[in-house]
């Protein structure tokens, strides 16, 4: 009788334990799911962004102000508005990037090795702007730990580039807010294991149901004293953009 009672109690405990652990498995998202959520929050159906870049190169500091129009991952038009660069524009159409400088009055296509240069002297390369494929499609992500960044609980996720996929960075390490699914920190590595860039998000805002990074700092780890701050002043989502917004004619 006692034996039966003990078995019954053990059995019940097992069922409870299994059901609890089962709940846990369902509740904890996988690394891929987390990164898909990050991609989802970063993806802009259409938007107008007014932003500022503060570029530091050793003792030199440059400020660039711009207005960008974005449609999905494939289309983007950026117009610089600060006095020195006023009239300069960048147009991204799928895998092509053009720029227009008012002094030269000519449209130049940026291709090949030019894409690796920093955009307007910043630590964002043109190639960084061109990558429109979702991260979850390029990398094999794994959760490697949990850490707090500026008081926020984060998943630490490592992404290794999938064989055969074209991506600028072989490995990336992401600190993703557990609740808000924004990247608080990101490290980008070369295939050799060398850290190339580090991105830190200092301010996020909840806009129309999603958390969006508003103030980011990117450090070029191959260059001393090279840093770019990217600050969003104003952002409007889901705008109706005229059909010709992203045409070459509008670039002039």
């Amino acid at each position: 009788m006692n034996n039966i009672l003990v078995r019954l109690i053990l059995g019940l405990m097992l069922v409870v334990a299994l059901s609890l652990s089962g709940t846990e498995i369902i509740a904890a998202p996988s690394a891929a799911e987390i990164m898909e959520q990050v991609d989802e929050y970063q993806h802009l159906q259409s938007a107008k962004i007014e932003s500022k870049m503060i570029i530091t190169k050793g003792p030199r500091k440059m400020v660039k102000e711009m207005t960008s129009y974005i449609k999905g991952a494939d289309y983007g038009l950026t117009k610089f508005t600060n006095p020195r660069d006023r009239g300069s524009k960048f147009l991204k159409r799928e895998n092509n990037l053009w720029m227009f400088f008012p002094d030269a009055e000519d449209i130049v296509k940026i291709s090949g090795h030019m894409l690796e240069q920093g955009m307007m002297g910043s630590d964002f390369s043109y190639q960084d702007l061109m990558e429109s494929t979702k991260l979850a499609d390029l990398y094999q992500f794994t959760i490697i730990g949990e850490e707090k960044v500026d008081g926020r609980s984060c998943y630490v996720i490592e992404g290794i580039k999938e064989e055969g996929k074209e991506a600028s960075y072989y490995r990336r390490k992401e600190w993703v807010d557990k609740e808000r699914f924004v990247l608080w920190r990101e490290e980008l590595y070369a295939r050799s294991g060398r850290l190339l860039k580090e991105l830190q998000t200092k301010k996020v805002e909840q806009l129309e149901g999603r958390w969006y990074p508003m103030y980011q700092i990117i450090d070029n780890k191959l260059k001393k004293n090279s840093q770019t701050v990217y600050e969003i002043k104003k952002i409007e989502f889901d705008l109706e953009l005229p059909a010709n917004t992203f045409s070459l004619q509008r670039l002039r």
Binding site: E116, Q127, K161, G164, K165, E166, A167, S168, Y169, Y170, A190, R191, S192, R194, L196, L222
Partner: peptide, 13 residues
Amino acid sequence: LVKTAEETFNTID
């Protein structure tokens, strides 16, 4: 700083 055939950054030190 180089790029591999798969457009991935790599370094030679």
